[in-house]
C-alpha cells in the first residue's frame, strides 16, 4: 500500500519550553483509517494542527502525497480536510454558503452539484438554507465534516469527532467514516474513546507526552496484547497447584481459592476443555468460572502507564 502521509522526526516546542511533540515519525497508508489514541494533552491535536498548517513545527518534516507541507503548502493542503475538535462555525451563515466558502477557500471552482452530494451524504441537504445557529449540536458537527469534504480531500483528519456526542450520533459518525473509507479517503482520527478506535480503525497509534509509543494493525495489536483470562473459582482453598495441572501454566490466587488460566483467543485451541477435565480429575470442586478479556483500553493503560513509570 502506498504511503500518502509521511511524518519525520516532527518536533514542536513552545516559548515556555514545553515540548508538545518530541520527534514523531509516522507513515500513513493511502485508504486506511488510523486512530490516534492518547490521554488529554498527549499531543494528538498538536500533531494534527502541525500537519494541517495551524501550528508551525519547530523541526522535522511532513509530506502529503509527496508534497512538503511548508515548501509546497498549497499542493499539500489541497489534499487535506480537517474536522476540528471544537464546533467552530459562523452562527448566522447558511449551511450551503458556509460549505461553498470552504470549497472556494481550498481553490476549487464553485460546484453546487458536488456540494449537494456532500450535503446529501451527511443528511444535511434539507437544512441547506438554515442558518447554522438553528442546527442541533450533531448537525453542526456534520456541517464541519461537510466543510472539510467540500474540496474533495484525499486525507481527512477528524479531531475527536465524537467527543461529547450521544451514542446514536457516535454510531452515525462511524458509519460516515466507513463510507468515506469506502470512497478511498484516508482517515486519521484522534480519540480517547478506545471502543471507537476498536470499532473503526485499521491501525492504532498510541501517543503520550508528545511521543508515539506504537503504531500497529489493530488486529495484530489485539492479538499480541489482547490475552484472555479464565478464573476458576474453587469451593475450598488449596495451598499448591496439583502436579497434574502443571502443563496448564496456572497461577494460584492469593487466597488459594482461584486458579488463573491465561490463553490466546486467536489460537486454534484454547485448552479450556482439557483444563476443566483435568481440574475435575484432580478432585477440585468448582464454585464458578469467570472469563475476562484485556480490551484495547487495558492495553492502552498498560502502555501509557509503562511510559509514565
Amino acid at each position: 500500500m502506498t504511503t500518502i502521509l509521511s511524518i519525520r522526526d516532527l518536533r514542536k516546542s513552545y516559548a515556555d519550553g514545553f515540548e508538545a511533540l518530541k520527534g514523531v515519525s509516522l507513515d500513513i497508508r493511502e485508504g486506511e483509517i488510523l486512530a490516534l489514541l492518547g490521554p488529554n494533552g498527549a499531543g494528538k491535536t498538536t500533531l494534527i494542527s502541525t500537519i494541517c498548517g495551524i501550528t508551525t513545527p519547530t523541526s522535522g518534516s511532513v509530506t502529503v502525497g509527496g508534497h512538503d507541507i511548508q515548501e509546497e503548502f498549497r499542493a499539500a493542503r489541497q489534499m487535506i480536510g480537517l474536522v476540528p475538535q471544537e464546533i467552530a462555525l459562523e452562527p448566522f451563515e447558511k449551511v450551503m454558503n458556509t460549505v461553498r466558502f470552504s470549497r472556494g477557500l481550498f481553490g476549487k471552482r464553485a460546484n453546487d452539484g458536488r456540494i449537494e452530494e456532500v450535503l446529501r451524504k451527511l443528511s444535511l441537504w434539507d437544512k441547506r438554507r438554515n442558518a447554522i445557529k438553528e442546527l442541533s449540536g450533531g448537525m453542526k458537527r456534520r456541517v464541519l465534516i461537510a466543510k472539510a469534504l467540500a474540496h474533495d480531500p484525499r486525507v481527512l483528519f477528524l479531531d475527536e469527532p465524537t467527543a461529547g456526542v450521544d451514542v446514536e450520533l457516535r454510531k452515525d459518525m462511524w458509519e460516515i467514516v466507513a463510507e468515506l473509507k469506502a470512497a478511498g479517503v484516508t482517515i486519521i482520527l484522534t480519540t480517547h474513546y478506545i471502543e471507537e478506535a476498536e470499532a473503526i480503525a485499521d491501525r492504532i497509534g498510541v501517543i503520550n507526552k508528545g511521543e508515539l509509543l506504537l503504531v500497529e494493525d489493530k488486529a495484530k495489536l489485539m492479538a499480541r496484547m489482547g490475552r484472555k483470562q479464565l478464573d476458576v473459582l474453587l469451593t475450598r482453598p488449596i495451598s499448591t497447584i496439583p502436579a497434574s495441572l502443571a502443563r496448564h501454566n496456572l497461577l494460584l490466587g492469593a487466597a488459594g481459592d482461584v486458579l488463573i488460566y491465561t490463553y490466546d483467543t486467536h489460537a486454534d485451541r484454547t485448552g479450556i476443555t482439557t483444563l476443566l477435565n483435568d481440574v475435575a480429575e484432580a478432585g477440585l470442586v468448582l464454585r464458578d468460572v469467570v472469563t475476562r478479556q484485556s480490551s484495547l483500553e487495558e492495553i492502552f493503560v498498560t502502555l501509557v502507564k509503562g511510559e509514565t513509570q
Binding site: 498549497r74 499542493a75 480537517l82 476540528p84 467552530a88 477557500l105
Partner: peptide, 17 residues
C-alpha cells in the same frame, strides 16, 4: 477578529492560501 473569536480561523490557516 470574528473568525478568531469563533475559532473558524482554523480553516483559513489550514487552507492553501
Amino acid at each position: 477578529y470574528f473568525p478568531k473569536f469563533l475559532g473558524t480561523v482554523y480553516e483559513l490557516l489550514s487552507a492553501p492560501v
